[in-house]
Amino acid sequence: MTVTEQSGSCAGCGVKLQSSDKEKSGYIPVSAAERTPAICQRCFRIKNYNEASSITIDQDDFLRLLGGIANTDSLVVHIVDLFDFEGSVISGLQRFVGNNPVLLVVNKIDLLPRAVNHNRILNWVQQQAKEAGLKTVEVVLCSAKRNIGFDRVVDAIEYYRRGRNVYVVGATNVGKSTLINRIIHDYSDLDAELTTSRYPGTTLDAVHIPLDDGKSIIDTPGIVYSHRMTEIVPRSVLQAILPDKPIKPLVYQLNEQQTMYVGALARFDFVSGERQSFTLYISNGLEVHRTKLERADELWADHKGVLLSPPTAEELADMPAWTRHSLRIPRGGEYDVFVSGLGWMRVNGMTGALVDVYLPKGIKVHVRRALI
């Protein structure tokens, strides 16, 4: 499988290039239009200055693009983020892709603690995918960034595509462009690179990467799910909540009526239950503060945005107000309290518990079978 050159669109994000309006997507100065590969000014600034842009794809356009896959004869590669599995699975993907085979690529396996059993993780993913209604030909665990399982991803794509086009789909920040860049760099001499960053919505249109047999790998824009913490926090906070190295689990022994704050992003109240331990799997860049439940409101009022941060007090003012979720942890099993885009808390006691979780309104939270 080798890649060939293409022109006419931005080599970074796929949008059609234009030199007439700086405020619209695809703008490229006339002086830069003859460069090879040609990239729009937005991608240039992301690549060279890590600068964000407010230009994003319209979600109706994305759904039309995704819906067109069902009318093709293609392999669909659905990339999800293991750290945010439920938050990054495309809801109802099967109805968009029709009868086309789906290869499920689970990225960012490198973020889990090194001692984790990958076979257990694979079994967990397969069960979660089944419950989500996904029909997959194979599940591959990988880290495009750390080159873990990457050869198997490439081999699986080549095996299952069988001379067809390949559509790569996924939510924002799951690593689609990073994975495709690995294919470009490792399996071709093409002097091009998709734009990657921590900012949502980096890819604005379908990016066609021609293969030597006349077919293409098509990188689609990442769908933006507002139920993920990564989509509602200020961009300055993304680096703190998106882990880039193996997570160091944080274990806390709690009595009932104790509270844990994760910065100013989440609050966990252990309302009732036997004394037990809780393990937080969150980015190493976040700080946790523990207090008694009776003092939790006072701590928030006095220290939100300062001791309890990120975000800052000013940034909190632009975020949705918190809402409370009361969750009952069943007895006799291994369970996580999962927060989309932030991480999860494993309940270790197996004796049951009542937990209240406070989060910005709209963020997905639920109890699931323990991942680790």
Rank of each mutant, 00 (worst) to 15 (best):
residue 127 Q to I: 13
residue 309 S to Q: 13
residue 300 W to V: 05
residue 340 S to M: 07
residue 148 I to W: 09
residue 186 D to N: 14
residue 277 S to K: 15
residue 141 L to V: 09
residue 186 D to H: 13
residue 334 E to P: 06
residue 227 H to F: 11
residue 156 A to I: 01
residue 318 D to Q: 14
residue 40 C to V: 09
residue 185 H to W: 10
residue 73 D to T: 13
residue 218 I to Q: 00
residue 148 I to G: 08
residue 177 S to G: 03
residue 189 D to T: 15
residue 201 G to E: 03
residue 220 T to G: 03
residue 328 R to I: 10
residue 36 T to I: 14
residue 313 A to P: 01
residue 347 V to N: 03
residue 315 E to V: 00
residue 279 T to M: 01
residue 360 P to H: 09
residue 361 K to D: 12
residue 63 L to D: 09
residue 48 N to G: 13
residue 337 V to C: 06
residue 304 K to G: 09
residue 259 T to S: 15
residue 212 D to P: 01
residue 225 Y to C: 00
residue 319 M to P: 10
residue 308 L to G: 06
residue 251 V to G: 02
residue 295 R to Q: 14
residue 105 V to F: 04
residue 337 V to N: 03
residue 152 R to L: 10
residue 168 V to I: 11
residue 47 K to R: 15
residue 277 S to E: 14
residue 150 F to H: 05
residue 310 P to G: 06
residue 81 D to S: 07
residue 260 M to A: 15
residue 309 S to T: 12
residue 97 V to F: 05
residue 164 R to W: 09
residue 48 N to Y: 12
residue 4 T to N: 13
residue 53 S to M: 06
residue 322 W to C: 10
residue 192 A to P: 04
residue 127 Q to S: 12
residue 356 D to S: 12
residue 371 L to C: 10
residue 307 L to R: 11
residue 184 I to S: 00
residue 59 Q to H: 06
residue 80 V to S: 10
residue 291 T to L: 03
residue 130 K to Q: 08
residue 33 A to T: 01
residue 275 R to N: 04
residue 37 P to G: 02
residue 198 R to E: 04
residue 286 L to D: 02
residue 110 D to R: 02
residue 207 V to L: 06
residue 165 N to T: 07
residue 131 E to H: 12
residue 145 K to H: 11
residue 9 S to C: 11
residue 321 A to V: 12
residue 236 S to A: 13
residue 345 M to K: 03
residue 109 I to C: 06
